[in-house]
Design a protein around this nucleic acid. Structure first.
Ligand SMILES: [Mn+2]
Ligand SMILES: [Mn+2]
Ligand SMILES: [Zn+2]
Ligand SMILES: [Zn+2]
Lengths: 132, 132
DNA sequence: TCTATATTTAGACATTGTCAAACATTTTTC
DNA sequence: GAAAAATGTTTGACAATGTCTAAATATAGA
């Protein structure tokens, strides 16, 4: 029935009301939000939740590979519900972060970096998003 | 004579003692240091310099294109005296950041991102550096 | 129910970064 | 050249992000 409950249980996470509020919110959006932005939104559903619980829950979801923490903005980590490999474009005027599908770009040459074992990579692009 | 003095003057930066201490230090190293790491080192030459002045000076050097601020670590910007285009490898165990020459990798496909005007890009690789 | 374990919470703390006001220097006026 | 004004620089105080601890609550198992 509730797929988020089973998603959490499969990873051994007890679905408390606070964790459900955070998970339902973060898995229901596509954007890249900071912990405090998540707190602000979740408080409307669950007004008594504490800052520490939001940080704890987000970090737990990252540890269990249901979320990815991305270092894309100055000053704060953002949490990404897209855990597949992909790239990011950052609008330098607005700070908005856009997902770029993995297949849209091709990176070559990393196999010949003899001194580095590469576990993952991504391209970070910066510029201006063109108004449609 | 003093090449850092003229470097600053060429960009219209008054070479105050505090700015000289920061500039001489940051242009004398290659690594990717945070503002507070710079402060700690510069204090040995110039013990009374304030944290705000170090931040101001580093940000001024970024504005004048003598340094580049890079978002590579959680929690802090790092300052890069290598202002040429290049990529970065981050050792996930040590946190150490390594420069990857621009020519070592090739990225293709960004021209076909029709909704984005790309001003710059870099590849960020994570993994383990192999002990030589 | 009773007990052990797990979770939440508020607040203290550490670190990173910004800002308005104090201070210093340069330029203008007389 | 001295005084005043404008401009430039530095700084301590403050804000924002994130972690930690210990006490209170909630949950699960016997
Ligand atoms: Mn974290
Ligand atoms: Mn900055
Ligand atoms: Zn993403
Ligand atoms: Zn670099």
């Amino acid at each position: 029935m509730n797929s988020i409950v089973s998603m959490l249980r499969e990873r051994g996470i007890q679905p408390t009301p606070q964790r459900m509020a955070v998970a339902e919110f973060i898995f229901g959006i596509k954007s890249h939000l900071s912990a405090d932005q998540v707190l602000e939104q979740v408080r409307s559903k669950c007004p008594t939740i504490s800052r520490a619980t939001v940080y704890n829950t987000l970090n737990l979801l990252v540890e269990k590979k249901l979320l990815k923490a991305q270092v894309l903005k100055e000053g704060t980590v953002v949490f990404d519900s897209n855990v597949q490999q992909h790239h990011h474009f950052i609008d330098e005027e607005t700070g908005e972060i856009y997902d770029i599908p993995w297949e849209a770009l091709r990176v070559t040459g990393e196999k010949s970096l003899r001194n580095f074992r590469v576990r993952e990579l991504q391209v970070i692009l910066r510029g201006k998003r063109i108004k449609k």
